[in-house]
Design a protein around this nucleic acid. Structure first.
Length: 429
RNA sequence: GGAGAGGUGGCUGAGUGGUCGAAAGCGCGGGUUUGCUAAACCCGUGACCGGGUAACUGGUCCGCAGGUUCGAAUCCUGUCCUCUCCGCCA
């Protein structure tokens, strides 16, 4: 969320930004509530002060009658205080909910627009688009013919949107995890495998909303836990309510987690195959940085994503995400869209990774601060997240780009030592 | 799952109803001493929300949420977490 004082002092800016983002957050309501809150707070403070004075004086009063008189006075004051506090709590609760609904500011260079149609292509990857002298199959067909993906089996045990990976697809999944990890470890990231469940409080801190009507999140009955939609949630929560020394920053983590998404309201759009599924594995990058370092870190994350996909020999383009498509927490976001030859009439780009600079929007909610030696007070860190590799979508890109006329699939050079073979062919029989 | 112990400031750790936002130590900042460094000594040093140009000042915070009381770090209830032991188990 944004800083309360900042919103008050920059109300017009915040309102304009809400408009750019297509957010319906009620900034005017926020301003009214904030004024009320301050008045009420002053009342409560004053009553508390009086009550504290009376309480202190009782301890020093010897005369029993005088003590009783002061106790009565104290009771009266505490009653008034409690009433005022209740008013204040009600105001503060509404204020907080409005404040949380206000999206982060937008980077001045982020393209303005209502949805992903306005995204701006920045550049393309090193690998040229593949040329096929046959009609390429899509990954669903390939997955079936090579016995790599079993959607029917997945649907049978867990419903539509679930799948079994089989045979060499399992090796590919593990190879992709290891491939991403090897690069990130070399880059100084601390590798982690994170919980697949998190407290709802942590979900909310990172900007995810469990149990809403349009929630993307699976909740666990009779608990305050949800299945995570990404390791961004668990890695962000890792340092919640902590104060770190400035010289320890930046902190770089990468995390393997399973990602669970209900995909509520996503029916009818790109639901074929592995593109939009309820569960997949992801290697996620996460950074906590000083405020002045977050822009450069976003470029670094984007560059790492490019290196991973260049290394896999997959064609892609990088897009700068439009303001209306940024969601709540992101200040700026870059997506990698890989070429998927089996998609649409003659191939289309489809999002495979995404990296965001959330500035202090998440850290303010999560209470993640840093302290600089010799300086008074603390400040909020900046948080960034980026997909290293989302396995399901990477699989689509690999299968479709590396297919051959005989329906076999070459294993990308970089993965061959990890998969242990050069080519995936249909199992005998 | 059963039995205990405990969660206090950046860290360690005192504190069992009033003057405690909280001893002491570490760390950190400043100073004295010093050829330099180190050591020693002295002073200062929590976070958050308000008011004030400022000096300064009001309030909140001792895992979290409630309760008792004029008054709670301290007593009570619930909850989360950590540790030890027992049971079960991959």
């Amino acid at each position: 969320m944004l800083d309360r004082k900042f919103i008050v002092e920059n109300a017009e800016l915040v309102k304009n930004n809400c408009a750019l983002r297509g957010s319906k957050a009620d900034v005017d309501r926020f301003l009214v509530l904030d004024g009320k809150r301050r008045e009420k707070q002053a009342d409560v403070d004053d009553l508390n002060r009086q009550a504290n004075e009376v309480s202190k004086s009782i301890g020093q009063t010897k005369d029993p009658a005088e003590r009783e008189a002061r106790k009565t006075r104290g009771r009266e004051l505490r009653d008034k205080t409690a009433a005022a506090q209740a008013d204040l709590d009600a105001i503060a609760a509404e204020l907080d909910s409005v404040q949380r609904s206000i999206p982060n500011l937008s980077h001045p260079k982020a393209p303005v627009g209502g949805d992903d149609q306005a995204n701006l292509e920045l550049r393309k990857g090193k690998t040229p688009l593949p040329r096929f002298d046959f009609k390429p199959l899509d990954h669903v067909q390939l997955g079936e013919r090579l016995a790599l993906i079993d959607f029917e089996g997945g649907a049978k045990v867990a419903g539509h949107g679930f799948y079994f990976l089989k045979n060499d697809a399992v090796l590919l999944e593990l190879a992709l995890q290891r491939y991403a990890l090897d690069l990130l470890i070399a880059e100084g990231f601390t590798p982690t495998i994170t919980p697949d469940l998190a407290r709802n409080e942590v979900l909310q801190g990172t900007g995810y909303i469990p149990r809403g009507p349009e929630t993307q999140i699976y909740s666990i009955a009779d608990s305050d836990l949800s299945l995570v939609a990404t390791a961004e949630i668990t890695l962000g929560g890792l340092l919640s309510d902590e104060i770190v020394d400035a010289e320890r920053l930046p902190l770089l983590f990468c995390g393997i987690s399973h990602c669970y998404r209900t995909e509520a309201g996503a029916h009818g759009r790109q639901t074929r195959g592995l593109y939009r599924v309820h569960q997949f594995t992801k290697v996620e990058m996460f950074a906590f940085t000083l405020p002045e370092a977050s822009e450069a870190m976003l470029d670094r994350f984007c560059d790492l994503e490019c290196r991973l996909f260049d290394g896999l020999g997959i064609p892609y383009r990088v897009v700068d995400t439009a303001t209306g498509d940024l969601g709540g927490p992101a200040y700026r976001k870059f997506d990698l869209e890989a070429w998927m030859p089996g998609r649409g009439e003659a191939g289309e780009y489809g999002e495979v990774t995404s990296t965001s600079n959330c500035t202090d929007y998440q850290s303010r909610r999560l209470g993640i601060r840093y302290r600089t030696k010799g300086e008074k007070g603390t400040q909020f860190v900046h948080t960034l997240n980026g997909t290293a590799i989302a396995i399901s979508r990477a699989l689509i890109a690999i299968l479709e780009n590396y297919q051959e006329a005989d329906e076999s699939v070459r294993v990308p050079e970089a993965l061959r030592p990890l998969v242990g073979k050069e080519r995936i062919v249909a199992p005998a029989g």
